[in-house]
C-alpha cells in the first residue's frame, strides 16, 4: 500500500480511496482498531501525495516550457550578430516592425495622394484657361457658319470634365482617409505587444516559483515525460487574437451621435 501511495496520481485517487474505505469498514467491523488508525493515516497521506505529485508534474512541465522559451530567446541573441533578418525572431519586434512598415507605407501613399491633388488643382487651372478660349469660340461662332453649334458642344464637354475633376478630388480624399486603417491596426498590434510582454514577465516569475518548488520537493527535472511537443504548443499558442466586439461597444458613428444626442448634445 505505501508504495502505491508514493506514486499515486490524480486519476487513481478515487479508486484507491474506495478500496481503502472498504478496507477501513471491514477492519472496524473486525474490531482491529489499531489497523483502522493506520488506514486513516494512509488515507491522509494519499491525499497529500496526490497534491505533491501533481505539483511535481506542473513544475516539470513548466520547467520544460520555460527551457524551450529561453532557448528561443538565446537563438535570437546569437543570430542577432550574424544576420539582421533573423534577428527579428522576437515576436514583439516583428510586430513593431509591422507598425513601422505600415506607417511608412501609409505616408508614401499620402505623398502620392498629395501629389495627385496638386495635379488636380492644375487641371482646374487649365479648365479656367479653357473657359476663356471657349468664350472666344462663342464670339466667333456668329461670324463663321462652320462653327455653328461648336460652342454648345464644347461647353458640354467642359462641364463633364469639371465633374470628373470633382470626382477625382473626392476619390483622392477617400484614399487619404482610408489610410487611417494604419492607426487602427497599429493600436491592435500595440495591445498584443503589451500582452506578450506581460506573458513573458509572468513566465519568468513562474520559472522562479518552479525553481523553489523544485528545491522543496526534490523532483528530478531531468525526467521530463514524453510529449514535449504539447508543451511547445502551449508556449506558441500566445498568438495574436482579434479583439471580439465588446458587448457595450457602439456600432458606428450613427450610434455615437444617437448616444450623444440622448445626453443632450
Amino acid at each position: 500500500m505505501k508504495k502505491k501511495i508514493a506514486t499515486l496520481e490524480y486519476d487513481g485517487l478515487e479508486d484507491l480511496l474506495g478500496q481503502m474505505a472498504r478496507e477501513l469498514v471491514t477492519t472496524i467491523e473486525e474490531g482491529n482498531l489499531a489497523h483502522a488508525m493506520e488506514l486513516i493515516n494512509d488515507l491522509q497521506e494519499a491525499r497529500h501525495q496526490v497534491f505533491y505529485n501533481e505539483v511535481g508534474h506542473l513544475t516539470r512541465g513548466l520547467h520544460e516550457a520555460i527551457k524551450a522559451f529561453s532557448s528561443d530567446i538565446d537563438e535570437k541573441i546569437l543570430s542577432e550578430e550574424s544576420a539582421a533578418q533573423t534577428a527579428m525572431t522576437d515576436a514583439s519586434e516583428r510586430l513593431s516592425y509591422v507598425i513601422e512598415l505600415t506607417e511608412k507605407n501609409s505616408h508614401e501613399t499620402m505623398d502620392r495622394v498629395d501629389r495627385s491633388l496638386t495635379l488636380v488643382d492644375r487641371l482646374d487651372g487649365q479648365s479656367e484657361r479653357f473657359r476663356d478660349l471657349l468664350l472666344l469660340v462663342g464670339q466667333l461662332e456668329g461670324e463663321f457658319k462652320a462653327l455653328d453649334g461648336v460652342y454648345d458642344r464644347t461647353c458640354t464637354v467642359k462641364n463633364e470634365s469639371e465633374k470628373t475633376i470633382e470626382e477625382l478630388r473626392s476619390t483622392l480624399t477617400e484614399i487619404l482617409v482610408s489610410q487611417s486603417v494604419q492607426d487602427i491596426t497599429g493600436q491592435l498590434i500595440r495591445r498584443v505587444i503589451t500582452l506578450m510582454t506581460q506573458v513573458e514577465s509572468q513566465l519568468v516569475k513562474l520559472m522562479d516559483m518552479a525553481a523553489k518548488v523544485e528545491r522543496l520537493t526534490g523532483i528530478e527535472m531531468g525526467q521530463a515525460p514524453e510529449g514535449d511537443e504539447a508543451k511547445d504548443d502551449a508556449i506558441r499558442a500566445q498568438g495574436p487574437q482579434l479583439k471580439k466586439k465588446e458587448a457595450s461597444a457602439v456600432g458606428n458613428q450613427d450610434d455615437v451621435d444617437e448616444l450623444l444626442s440622448s445626453l443632450g448634445f
Binding site: E103, H107, M110, T173, V177, Q179, S180, Q182, D183, Q187
Partner: peptide, 17 residues
Amino acid sequence: VDDFSTMRRIIKNLLRD
C-alpha cells in the same frame, strides 16, 4: 493630437480641405 503620424496627417489634410 494623435500618437499616429498617419492620423495626424489625415486630419490635417481634411482641415486644409
